[in-house]
């Protein structure tokens, strides 16, 4: 099978991020490409589209495809202060985003993830979170550690190590950092002191454990009071102060993504539907997704309200009202080359 056909059939979206102005969506995949989508254009298309007409029209396409590295997957993406931060394998690089030309400029900086001497593989940069107030980037990597990188000088400031397997997800709130790992734990870190301040092991909770799915934790999201996590074990909601599991979210499959959306919780994973729950764990909505699995969910309310879900599919699902899928973007087009 030709390379272009393989891309069509086996494209997997691993990461997404939105530009600061909220008008552009960047999508990274397993073939090392970044797709750039103009949300304004999608929005304009959406107005013209009628739900009935949709199947007849050709699927929407990205404005630009930018190849970062055809050998390494684009595992994580973040946008900060005019830079697109790309996490691939063993490296994090910053690219200038040219808003006027709608182009990704040259690579302006790169931070290598130090590889352990005994490892024969470079570490994946699985997830990134930016503390906007302090201009710090936190990268959860394949070598079991979370690295804090100062975006001012590119220095690796701190290393949060303690997990026994690779990091799936990193998020933070004020001075706290939360990381979800393949080893089945959610660890709470104090950023300034660089030490563990708490941990959750959902797989040890009999109500949450699903041994046939493994113990790994794929995602973690926090607000001031609440934390959601999930993975092999069931998706669950925890009270941050008491560290008690308050609700179990009935998502039937493995969990890869979680988000807070106003007063709702969004959960997606290896299931053909994305679920939305209220805070008392009732299913509010089930919306279909294109692929076998979702690996990335981004959402915003301003300036264009939308939620975008990518996963094991060449199609990116865009929900402009969060409740039903109204736009499908075909990332690689099937034109013969």
């Amino acid at each position: 099978m030709g390379f272009s056909s393989r891309k069509l059939l086996y494209n997997t979206v691993l990461s997404q991020t939105l530009s600061e102005c909220g008008n552009f969506l960047f999508v990274g995949n397993n073939f090392g490409d970044i797709f750039i989508l103009s949300l304004e254009r999608l929005e304009a298309n959406n107005v013209e589209y009628d739900a009935k007409e949709l199947p007849n029209k050709s699927p929407l396409e990205p404005t630009l495809i930018f190849t970062v590295d055809s050998k390494a997957a684009v595992n994580s993406l973040k946008f900060h202060r005019g830079f697109l931060i790309v996490g691939t394998v063993g490296s994090i690089a910053g690219y200038v985003w040219n808003e006027d030309k709608q182009q990704i400029g040259k690579k302006s900086w790169e931070v290598k993830i130090p590889s352990a001497p005994e490892s024969i593989e470079a570490a994946d940069v699985n997830f990134m979170w930016v503390d906007k107030a302090s201009d710090n980037l936190f990268a959860g990597c394949g070598d079991h550690a979370v690295y804090q990188i100062s975006l001012e000088d590119g220095r690796m400031v701190r290393t949060f190590s303690g997990h026994k397997d690779y990091i799936h997800c990193v998020t933070g709130l004020e001075n706290n950092l939360y990381s979800a790992s393949e080893d089945g734990t959610i660890v709470f870190w104090d950023i300034r002191e660089c030490k563990q301040v708490g941990r959750l092991e959902p797989h040890t909770n009999a109500d949450l454990a699903r041994p046939e799915f493994g113990k790994w934790q794929g995602t973690v999201s926090v607000t001031n009071d609440w934390l959601i996590c999930g993975g092999g074990p069931r998706a669950s909601m925890w009270h941050l102060r008491s560290l008690e599991c308050t609700n179990i979210l009935p998502f039937p499959e493995k969990v890869h993504c979680s988000e807070f959306l106003d007063d709702l919780i969004v959960i997606a994973g290896e299931h053909p539907f994305l679920h939305q729950y209220s805070f008392n764990a009732e299913v509010v909505a089930e919306v279909p997704i294109s692929g076998a699995s979702a690996y990335s969910v981004v959402l915003q309310n301003e300036p264009i309200k939308l939620m975008s879900v990518g996963g094991a599919s060449n199609f990116l699902d865009i929900y402009t009202n969060f409740n039903y899928r109204d736009l499908i973007v075909k990332l690689y087009s099937s034109k013969k080359d």
Binding site: L14, I120, E121, G142, Y166, H256, Y295
Partner: peptide
Amino acid sequence: FLKAFRGRQR
């Protein structure tokens, strides 16, 4: 095998 799973897509 080095790792049974790797990356967010496991």
